[in-house]
């Protein structure tokens, strides 16, 4: 079992299996001269470039896979990917997500298939940004952006509604509700075979 505990790399110079097994040999404390070297370290550091980022003025990009605010994605023709299955809400350890699904009706279709998310709320006072909801989502409707500036002054403002979370309409997308692409069903959508909107679906956004 002990082998399993061996760290994969000592990139950070931290725990090393051999190190922890080696008997402790240095019983003498560092000599007085060596201890004085500590003063040189702090003195030297004074003339180094500071690490601080002047945050509100200077914003450094986050890591590409940083867990930020959520986004509800759309299919290329503008229909929503969310099917209102509530798996995200069930996966959420902090109970931050509330979903109410509803049936797509003839003439009032929001997503391909039977159901769509009618109410979708994420409470950012509870969310811990663990990303389990993203793993749970079967249609890749829910993903996370890199946006992290989520502070606000009231509790109400921090409960994000569907409108706040939906991704923007891109060029070629038609704002739902609108019918599915002609002669397709929902599985065509999931296979990625629908790559844009059809004139019969409505007027597409063009920029």
């Amino acid at each position: 079992m002990a082998e399993d505990l061996v760290p994969r790399s000592d990139e950070f110079g931290l725990a090393h299996a051999d190190q922890s097994k080696a008997p402790i040999t240095n019983h003498e404390s560092a000599s007085f001269g060596k201890q004085l070297l500590g003063f040189w370290v702090t003195f030297k550091t004074m003339f180094k470039k500071v690490n601080t980022v002047q945050y509100p003025e200077v914003k450094e990009p986050t890591a590409p896979r940083f867990h930020g605010r959520h986004q509800l994605n759309r299919h290329p023709d503008g229909l929503e990917k969310c099917i209102g299955c509530e798996l995200c809400a069930w996966a959420c350890p902090a109970d931050a997500i509330y979903v109410e699904g509803a049936d797509n009706k003839e003439g009032e279709r929001f997503s391909p298939g039977e159901r769509y998310g009618k109410v979708y709320q994420i409470n950012y006072l509870r969310c811990i940004f663990c990303g389990l909801c993203i793993e749970a989502c079967p249609t890749r409707a829910l993903t996370m952006t890199n946006e992290y500036e989520l502070a606000d002054s009231t509790r109400e403002k921090l409960i994000f509604e569907k409108d706040d979370l939906l991704g923007p309409l891109r060029a070629g997308m038609v704002p739902p509700p609108h019918p599915m692409y002609p002669n397709t069903d929902d599985s065509n959508y999931y296979r990625g075979e629908v790559t844009g909107s059809h004139p019969s679906q409505g007027v597409a956004k063009n920029d």
């Binding site: 702090t42 550091t45 180094k48 500071v50 690490n51 601080t52």
Partner: peptide
């Protein structure tokens, strides 16, 4: 102290 800790 901040400079000694590489802060500003």
């Amino acid at each position: 102290v901040a400079r000694m800790q590489q802060r500003s």
